[in-house]
Nucleic acid binder design. Structure first.
Lengths: 101, 101
DNA sequence: GCAAAGTACTTTGTAGTGCAAAGTATAATC
DNA sequence: GATTATACTTTGCACTACAAAGTACTTTGC
């Protein structure tokens, strides 16, 4: 009967602050290497690895594994689904925030 | 050397989705009874009680206990500090979100 | 008038999350 | 060829969010 509450509509995968930072960063540039993202956001290896996995499981980023020379290199790229989810999240938040001001 | 990262500047007390909903709701009306808030946001008693405590500990809301007739009645009221913290949070998020679009 | 049901919360127990430390695997350097 | 570095992943712990259970009454039958 009641509307779905605002806080129920917030996608927790994107709302988490570190993952939000990752998504916003990726939305700007499309894709970034593991270490580039790590440096830009000041994350530990393990932390980024875990959040990257969570975002991949949600289908919001694609994890591309290649070799640069002889070393492994992991790149995170935002997907169409991820971009859409971020846009939805942003629109929802904008709505909440503008109501609040 | 580096700037404080965006995700470090997000206040986790306010960022949590249920507490954000509480703060936004209170910002609109100033104060609400425990049960009013519970109904509007679709929360369980325990959940609201816990989050109210967290917001009080942060100084973002004041918990006022009175008797209406013979029954206890708890009211949550947003504080000046809470309003300021919400504004800061909103401004920060607006910044992040506008960069992302 | 006293037991049963209701009101208004708070506390407890559990499942899930976020994080850095430790681990794995390979490459480069000394 | 042993040590150090690179590029991550996995593990273990501390914390959080939540509903269920608990507390302290009050109101309503009977």
């Amino acid at each position: 009967m009641a509307d779905k509450q605002l806080h129920d509509r917030i996608d927790e995968t994107i709302h988490q602050r570190t993952r939000l930072a990752i998504m916003v960063t990726l939305a700007g540039v499309g894709s970034l290497e593991f270490n580039g993202l790590k440096g830009q956001l000041g994350l530990s290896d393990g932390n980024l690895s875990t959040h990257a996995g969570a975002l991949e499981r949600a289908g919001f980023v694609k994890i591309i594994k290649r070799f640069r020379g002889r070393k492994p290199q992991t790149t995170l790229a935002i997907t169409a689904k991820g971009r859409k989810a971020l846009t939805n999240y942003i629109n929802l938040l904008q709505g909440i925030l503008s109501e609040a001001t």
